[in-house]
């Protein structure tokens, strides 16, 4: 879906001036912990996070994340937004929770990006 549609869906606000409304958002990753974000292997992913420290932008820059959605009504400080602008990463804010944001994007066709497991082989359902 287009960035502009995501904004409408999440009732979001774009914090940065670059016109990216036509940008396609088709993969996402939701994380608050930076090391978790750094375990990403897929590029061209949108990051959904509730962490607003400047490191989020640095990590996103290192990983070639294409856009960042800050959830839970969190607003990064101006310096963080300016930094994102400088490295060309559009940022959006929404008051919605991370759960709802993920749910809505997923329902509209956005899919998880690939990443590697943290430990050991995968395991199915067992009770």
């Amino acid at each position: 879906m287009k960035f502009a549609d995501v904004m409408e869906l999440l009732d979001g606000e774009i914090l940065e001036g670059v016109d990216v409304s036509e940008m396609i958002i088709d993969r996402a990753y939701a994380a608050d912990l930076l090391s978790d974000v750094l375990a990403l292997t897929d590029e061209r992913t949108t990051l959904i996070t509730g962490t607003i420290s400047p490191q989020v932008i640095r990590v996103a820059d290192i990983l070639n994340v294409i856009a960042i959605i800050f959830v839970r009504g969190k607003r990064p400080p101006k310096s963080v937004v300016t930094y994102a602008q400088r490295v060309g990463i559009p940022v959006m804010c929404t008051k919605k929770t991370m759960f709802e944001s993920c749910g809505l994007l997923y329902a509209n066709g956005v899919r998880p990006c690939k990443n590697r497991p943290v430990s050991g082989p995968g395991s199915g359902c067992s009770k």
């Binding site: 939701a30 759960f99 993920c102 749910g103 997923y106 329902a107 998880p112 990006c113 990443n115």
Partner: peptide, 11 residues
């Protein structure tokens, strides 16, 4: 990943 779990759980 969390995004996937949430997407399905939300539905």
């Amino acid at each position: 990943p969390a995004f996937d779990v949430c997407g399905r759980l939300y539905a």
